[in-house]
Nucleic acid binder design. Structure first.
Length: 210
DNA sequence: ATCCCGAGGG
DNA sequence: CCCTCTGGAT
C-alpha cells in the first residue's frame, strides 16, 4: 500500500475514533497485565466476565499470589486454556513481588521474562500502560494487515516490523487499537463486513464480501 | 509443529 | 457441527 493510502487509511480510523482504548477492564497496570495474559485465544468479553469478580476480591499481586493456582482457577475456569493461565498468573504475581516490588516493569526484557508473557503481551502492556508506540500483532492485526495489504507478512514478527515501518509516527501510538477494532467489528475473520468498512476503497483484498 | 481449552457465533 | 477469540511454551 502506498504511503499516501496508508496515511488516508489511518486518518479515517482516527476520525471515527479519536481516542481508542482497550475493551479489557482493569484498574491498575498489574490488572491490565493479568487481563492480557488471560486474553490469549479468548474474547475480551469472556475475560471481563471473569476478572470483574477476580479483581473485586483479589486486586493485587499479593492477593493473587496468596489465592494460589486452584483458587484462581475457580475464578477463570470459564476462559479457554485456564489451567495454564492460572499457573502462569500466580507464578507471575510471585515474580513481580520478588523482583519488582509488586510493580509491573517498564522494559520488554523484564516483561517477557514473566511466565505467560510473550512479545505480543509485552507490546500491549508497553503501549497501554506506559504509552510506548509499540504495535502488538494479534490474530486480528495479523489478518487485517494481510487482507488489506497494509502490512503483508507470513509471520507475526514480519507483520509487526512492516507496521512499525509504514505507520506514520503520528498514528503509531493508537495504531494497535484502531486495527484491533477494525478487525473485531468490521474486517471479521469469517464474514468481513466490507459494505460498512471505512477503508473499503483502500483495501487490497481480492475477495471482497459485497 | 503441537499442545494447552471454554464460550459464543454461524 | 466447525470456526474463532488481543498466544505462549515446549
Amino acid at each position: 500500500m502506498s504511503p499516501k493510502k496508508v496515511r488516508e487509511f489511518f486518518s479515517r480510523l482516527a476520525a471515527a475514533n479519536p481516542e481508542p482504548k482497550s475493551e479489557l477492564e482493569y484498574a491498575t497496570p498489574f490488572q491490565l497485565l493479568v487481563a492480557v495474559v488471560l486474553s490469549a485465544q479468548a474474547t475480551d468479553k469472556g475475560v471481563n466476565r471473569a476478572t470483574r469478580a477476580l479483581f473485586r476480591d483479589h486486586p493485587t499481586p499479593q492477593a493473587i499470589a496468596a489465592l494460589g493456582v486452584e483458587g484462581l482457577a475457580e475464578y477463570i475456569n470459564t476462559i479457554g486454556l485456564y489451567p495454564t493461565k492460572a499457573k502462569n498468573v500466580v507464578a507471575l504475581s510471585r515474580l513481580l513481588l520478588e523482583r519488582h516490588g509488586g510493580d509491573v516493569p517498564h522494559d520488554r526484557a523484564a516483561l517477557e521474562a514473566l511466565p505467560g508473557v510473550g512479545r505480543k503481551t509485552a507490546n500491549v502492556v508497553l503501549n497501554i500502560a506506559f504509552h510506548e508506540p509499540t504495535i502488538a500483532v494479534d490474530t486480528h492485526i495479523f489478518r487485517v494487515g494481510n487482507r488489506t495489504g497494509l502490512a503483508p507478512g507470513s509471520t507475526v514478527e514480519a507483520v509487526e516490523q512492516k507496521l512499525l515501518k509504514v505507520v506514520p509516527a503520528e498514528f503509531r501510538l493508537h495504531a494497535h487499537h484502531w486495527l484491533i477494532l477494525l478487525g473485531r467489528y468490521t474486517c471479521k475473520a469469517r464474514s468481513p463486513d466490507c459494505v460498512h468498512c471505512p477503508v473499503f476503497d483502500l483495501c487490497a483484498c481480492k475477495e471482497k464480501n459485497v
